[in-house]
Amino acid sequence: MLPFDPRAARIALVAIVTREALRFVHQRERFLAALVRPLVWLVVFAAGFRAALGLSIIPPYQTYITYETYIVPGLCGMILLFNGMQSSLSLVYDRETGAMRLLLTSPLPRWWLLTCKILASTLISMLQALVFLAIAAAFGVRVSWTGYIAVLPALLVAGLMLGGLGLALSSLIKQLENFAGVMNFVIFPMFFLSSALYPLWKMAESSQVLYAICASNPFTYAVELIRFALYGQFNPLALAVTIGTAVAFMGLALRGYDPARGLIRRKG
């Protein structure tokens, strides 16, 4: 194994981030689509659920809140989740065109190259989430400036976890046509069976089984990490679970892209 060259690693990081940024700039509909989904929930669905779903005072909130206020952190998580899956789709495309194979033949360590891909995707997700928070503020859902600053590391950690999930899934998806199945059996259950749209105590009132599923969903902890950060509070459990899950997903991705056992070898 070649020694790790910090200078070459920085060049690779800048190159991969720049490539992903240029791809994002040239796909403006991707940016709009990432904002349309959460805005539909914020503007349309929240209006209907506001009266039906009462919310008690729960941390990190100090008073009663509107439903719109509650779901904003979850909708930020939605942006990170769907963008992580979008990066998964682009990785499958890169593998089919040979771009991924060319990247992984670099003399740099495989773990660093894959980390660069995840980081590039996460930075784009963070930008989309920040734009959404600005739009949400225009609709009356505002937090303090310290909250907007504190949420940045929370978005980064959550984005790395979901980017790692997308990377791990991309190592399992053989064809672009199979991505629809991932949407139905991974993304939507992960989003709806979480605290993104309703607090866990509400779920416990209806079903203890669903509550247990939501409480074991790592996406729940990513959402709670963002929620607490927006209000200047620290949730150590959410941070620990999110980081631990990110490491686990990254380990699965490294295994999947290992030429000795993953898709790279089987497709070769």
Score class of each variant (00 low, 15 high):
R261Q: 15
W41I: 02
A248H: 06
V182P: 04
P38D: 05
R265M: 08
L35G: 08
S90K: 09
Q208F: 06
V14Q: 06
R266H: 12
T18M: 01
L156I: 04
A137P: 09
L2T: 10
A248G: 12
L230V: 01
L127I: 11
F132A: 09
L91Y: 01
Y93E: 10
T146W: 03
T245P: 15
F24I: 01
D258C: 06
I226V: 12
M85T: 04
T97A: 04
L176K: 08
L22C: 08
L237T: 14
N184Q: 05
F24K: 03
Y257D: 07
S125Q: 04
A8C: 07
V40P: 09
I58W: 07
A212Q: 07
V141T: 10
A51E: 15
F234L: 12
G166H: 02
L104K: 00
P153Q: 10
C214P: 00
M85I: 10
T66P: 05
W145F: 14
L210R: 06
L127V: 09
A150T: 09
S170P: 02
A240L: 15
A21P: 05
T18R: 15
L156D: 02
L169D: 08
W201R: 14
W111K: 09
Y148E: 06
M161L: 11
S144W: 00
V44Q: 11
I11L: 07
A52G: 06
V36Y: 04
I124S: 03
W145R: 07
L169K: 01
A168T: 09
P109S: 05
T220R: 13
A154S: 12
A33N: 14
F45Y: 10
P236M: 10
G166F: 01
S170H: 01
F188R: 09
R30T: 11
K202A: 15
G251F: 03
A150V: 00
R101Q: 12
I57E: 11
L13H: 14
R101C: 00
V72K: 12
I264Q: 13
I187N: 01
V131F: 04
P199V: 03
A222H: 12
L102G: 02
L39F: 02
L263S: 12
P259H: 10
V17T: 13
N235H: 15
I79W: 02
A150N: 13
M183R: 13
L91Q: 07
L162Q: 12
A21I: 03
A253I: 11
I11C: 04
V92P: 01
L13Y: 10
L119S: 05
S90W: 08
A229V: 01
L42V: 03
A260K: 15
F24V: 01
Y221A: 05
L32W: 12
Y198Q: 07
R95S: 03
P259K: 15
P59N: 06
Y70T: 01
P60C: 10
D5K: 08
L225G: 14
L2C: 00
M78I: 07
Q175T: 11
I71C: 14
Q86A: 15
Q86V: 02
T97R: 09
T115C: 04
S90L: 13
P153E: 05
A215I: 02
V209N: 03
P189D: 08
H26C: 10
